[in-house]
Nucleic acid binder design. Structure first.
Lengths: 141, 141
DNA sequence: TTGCATGCAAATCGTTTGCAACCCA
DNA sequence: TGGGTTGCAAACGATTTGCATGCAA
């Protein structure tokens, strides 16, 4: 998918959100980011192109995007929020030695898990997503 | 496992940590808690038995316990820390409609995943744990 | 035009820190 | 006794809030 401002504007329009330069910038920051930017990462990126943008505005935009399911919050072990573009199901690999979180796509794994939980029903739960979180350290050699 | 102060003291001693009333209380709060208490939950519990304990002390005790792998931090989607007693590998079920996080034990699932990743090596990664995170909503009927 | 969005600054709140007094081993 | 631990209060830092102004539709 090629990303330009028109594409991003369409994402906003599809949710009946007003298209503003601030929202375009914030959303572009997240889409262009390789790995789960923190609010601080996003602020740094956005300020390069619009130094006058308010921090509060950025947080409000992030909140709006999350509420509209355009982006989502990522679970973390420390206390800063990370965000990612809302995309198809994927898993996470966490390098604990580096506090680095990578996406991991594996259709094969997805179907194994889906089949497993299709058979093994969990009482009173409608499953919406099944994600695997792998923790490890970098192999040195 | 029956838990009394002697058991908890032994956990601390096994890590060569000094046994103090504050540490006993904090650790007891976590062990007795059914589901992943926040620091605030722990503070409330502990203050019932020792109103004079300092908030800073509680955070320092939590930090010490995490560093000694007696407890661990739990990944969350909001910005408060949650803790759990360090125990054998388990998975999490998250009820998004209630912000409720439950433990899920499944040896069968564990071996499926371990076998899968034993075959499918991930480059440059020494896996330490594989956890499944299931998100869903409560089934209404 | 009009209501939603922005910029700004103050406020909030969970967590951390520094240090003197304390107390477990 | 001595070094790790505690209590306290101030500091910190990420995020939120309120409000006047601005701007997209």
């Amino acid at each position: 998918m090629l990303i330009d401002n028109k594409n991003i504007a369409n994402i906003l329009k599809s949710k009946s959100l007003k298209v503003t330069p601030q929202r375009l910038l914030v959303l572009k920051a997240i889409i262009n980011s390789k790995n789960h930017p923190t609010a601080e990462n996003i602020i740094t990126y956005v300020k390069k192109f619009n130094p006058n943008i308010g921090i509060g505005t950025i947080y409000k935009v992030l909140d709006t995007l999350v509420k509209n399911k355009i982006i989502q919050k990522v679970e973390t072990y420390n206390d800063v929020m990370r965000y990612e573009f809302h995309t198809k199901n994927h898993h996470h690999i966490y390098f604990s030695d580096k506090d680095l979180l990578l996406d991991y796509y594996d259709n094969n794994l997805d179907s194994i898990l889906n089949n497993y939980f299709k058979k093994k029903k969990i009482p009173k739960l409608n499953i919406e997503s099944i994600k695997v979180h792998i923790t490890g350290k970098q192999k040195l050699k």
